[in-house]
Design a protein around this nucleic acid. Structure first.
Lengths: 200, 200
DNA sequence: GTCTATAACCCGATAGAC
DNA sequence: GTCTATCGGGTTATAGAC
């Protein structure tokens, strides 16, 4: 359905955003290098060259896709944490529910495999974006829990990284035969973490 | 396939192994897809076509490189754990010392980005190889600690994955400005983990 | 906005000389 | 064992018609 003329800012599923959606799905599944502009165009239902009407290059498309994804996480994460701002356990639980509701970010793959293929300018942009969207909200959560005396004094930087690294491994860990459901694994992780962080 | 018996064991840095060394370094730094046979040949100091005297294809070279790396980890890990077979803390410490002594494996990137580009046969081979070289030794370590009553009863599968995922994130986490040294982070992680796993 | 056609380049792999 | 030369194919990106 392509009636686009009337509404001035009708970008919901029109062209631009449709490209972003399919590109995000493919980039997430196979990484930046293994996805071709042909693949993306094919999923959208147009020809490869037509993509260049919407985005100037493959790299710019990837940056736009990734920035949009991080912004989604910033909003979702801040809302999840903010709605449970009383104790750390419910905050971490809400954060984990948010992560499990989203497709995996594959953050380490992105940093290690995708980023080095981009211009340094874009690497800086995406690194800053990931930091303030995902890392910083979690870091603040741990800092506040420490100020409330809920957990003992361990570098909040490290606690955020710890939590994220385990969350990132969940999609892989649950591919094992006989593995527990994601939710169970996450709750056990939070339990162990909070027990290990009890104040003296 | 006949092999010449004239030279007894002169394969240390001779041709074949020299290719394996440089290929391993490049594949680890940039991943399978982003490294070309020309890159590898250039590092070895030969021409791209000459690589095909040693390995039948890029994929076979990657498989050989990765199998050799996992075998190294199997030996190193089993030795580190076996030499400290009295309490879990010293075993995990020894395992972490081993991992920090080696270049990072980038396991999640390998599974997510590199593996899907290989033939299914090779994916199975490398998956099995990674499991028995890295995952299974750690899993057995946790199982034995549970039998000794050192830690409470949590799926050993999950504990091994937990430990590994954090170890894998260390190379990235220590790129942050003002981050603690790797050894400090690992020791804090082991401390938190063991406190969180104390038996009732 | 989408198309066709194509430029310009890089890749893995093979053939065959030395 | 290493070389040169090259083939066939895939890639990003551009030009210009509709």
């Amino acid at each position: 359905m392509s009636s686009d003329r009337s509404s001035p800012k009708q970008e919901s599923s029109s062209g631009h955003n449709r490209v972003l959606d399919e590109a995000e799905r493919l980039f997430r599944m196979r990484g930046y290098n293994a996805v071709t502009m042909r693949d993306i165009a094919c999923e959208v239902g147009i020809r490869q060259a037509s993509l260049y009407y919407h985005f100037a290059s493959k790299e710019q498309l990837f940056v736009a896709v990734t920035e949009r994804m991080f912004e989604r996480h910033r909003i979702g994460l801040q809302q999840a944490i903010g709605e449970n701002s009383h104790d750390l356990r419910s905050q971490l639980h809400a954060a984990s529910v948010w992560f499990l509701s989203q497709p995996p970010v594959h953050f380490l793959s992105m940093v290690h495999t995708d980023m080095p293929l981009l211009a340094e300018e874009n690497v800086k942009k995406l690194s800053a974006c990931s930091y303030q969207s995902i890392f910083e909200p979690l870091r603040q959560t741990f800092i506040q829990a420490q100020e409330r005396g809920e957990i003992r004094d361990i570098r909040p930087n490290w606690l955020a990284g710890f939590f994220l690294s385990v969350m990132e491994s969940i999609p892989y860990a649950t591919t094992f035969p006989g593995a527990a459901p994601k939710e169970v694994m996450v709750n056990e992780m939070i339990g162990v973490l909070l027990d290990g962080l009890k104040p003296e």
